[in-house]
């Protein structure tokens, strides 16, 4: 069952064509507010293909985090439905990778063992933990060296910088080969230089695992750099007001940020953001 981490030479899964992995169907969200219901999100419709990396950008409070939580099933969509492989998501999906702005790690485990946590919980890895321990350690070390943490495996979280912890938490989010990677402003707390480095490393990680990636961010450059598709949400009550495919070749490099094409994507998206 355990596939080796896909290396970057395997052909990309055909985007666009075929059955979508995730579908949003008339998704809405409301919360009680001063006696009546306040609409947060109204009628989001979209679909995400296997292997696609998409970003959601929009003003704060428009419901981006809520969208992620609907996909993860941590808070299923109250109005409309989100489907994974045609199945309505009504409880937490298993086998999802998540990373937040706060890169929570277990302080009693070193980096390597933190990264390996999902393998102790998710099937089939959990059952194979004893038999394939060495192989699993190797998988974790592989991911850690992709984010240049190979020399910090034995370090504890308090011995790592915020950026390093976030890199480790990305590895943890991906080690069990999830079908979906959910990222909620993962680099929001990092400085600009660290952040750009993180983009490159995240892309490298994601290109190995080839899962669906959903990124919430308020950094439009980050969205353009990482995504196949960017969705722009309006302010409350929000919906998707603009979407664009980013046709930059992969792997993308930081030099591309200076290209006209990149800046064209950036400024078009920027124009659609409301405040």
């Amino acid at each position: 069952m355990v596939q080796p981490l896909v290396d970057s030479t395997t052909p990309e899964p055909a985007a666009s064509a075929g059955q979508p992995l995730l579908e949003f169907d008339q998704v809405g969200l409301e919360y009680p507010f001063e006696g009546s219901m306040r609409q947060i999100i109204q009628s989001v419709d979209l679909s995400i293909q296997p292997g696609e990396f998409v970003s959601f950008v929009g003003p704060s409070g428009c419901g981006k985090t809520s969208i992620l939580r609907m996909v993860s099933g941590l808070n299923p969509a109250p109005i409309g439905e989100v489907r994974c492989r045609g199945q309505r998501i009504s409880k937490p999906l298993k086998n999802v990778g998540i990373a937040f702005q706060n890169p929570v790690m277990l302080p009693w485990r070193n980096t390597l063992s933190n990264v390996m946590l999902p393998l102790e919980i998710v099937s089939p890895y959990k059952q194979e933990m004893h038999r394939k321990k060495a192989e699993f350690v190797h998988m974790a070390q592989d991911l850690l060296s992709t984010v240049r943490l190979q020399d910090f495996q034995k370090q504890y979280p308090w011995q790592l910088s915020g950026g390093m912890r976030q890199r480790a938490s990305l590895c943890r989010a991906l080690i069990h080969q999830p079908e979906i990677l959910l990222l909620d402003e993962p680099f929001g707390a990092l400085d600009a230089f660290t952040r750009e480095e993180m983009w490159v490393m995240l892309q490298a990680l994601w290109m190995r695992v080839k899962c669906v990636g959903i990124l919430i961010t308020h950094d439009l450059r980050e969205a353009v750099f990482l995504s196949d598709k960017v969705y722009v949400m309006s302010s409350r009550p929000s919906t998707i007001i603009y979407e664009t495919r980013i046709d930059l070749p992969r792997p993308r490099t930081l030099e591309m940020e200076l290209s006209d094409e990149f800046n064209h994507y950036f400024s078009t998206i920027r124009r659609h953001i409301q405040h």
Binding site: S72, L74, P92, K94, V104, L117, I121, V122, L182
Partner: peptide, 14 residues
């Protein structure tokens, strides 16, 4: 326990 950590575990199906 940090809510994020709880979410990580729940989304792994723990």
């Amino acid at each position: 326990v940090e809510p994020e950590m709880k979410d990580v575990l729940r989304s792994l199906g723990a």
